[in-house]
Amino acid sequence: MEIKILGPGCTKCNTLEKLTREVVEKNGIVATITKVDDIMEIMKYGVMSTPAIVIDEKVVLKGRVPSADELKQLLTK
């Protein structure tokens, strides 16, 4: 699985990246996590509110930091 965290470097975006890494590690999910902070790259996903999570090139969440439980559900779906 390929996870991308979209965000130009605000606090919330960093929180989300950290949280994602934690959830992935805790649940033994096999995934690569990349942080995308290039705005051009972010816009390619049509995202207007950051942070956002992209899983296998599909935007699954945007504009907020989810709870660990919600994130786990998104990642194990």
Binding site: G7, P8, G9, C10, T11, K12, C13, I39, I42, M43, G46, V47, M48, S49, T50, G63, R64
Partner: peptide
């Protein structure tokens, strides 16, 4: 609309685009 100054840019770009 939920807004924080950190997403001012993506929002601006999305609107203009």
């Amino acid at each position: 609309t939920p807004f924080c100054s950190c997403s001012a840019i993506p929002l601006f770009l999305g609107f203009v685009e």
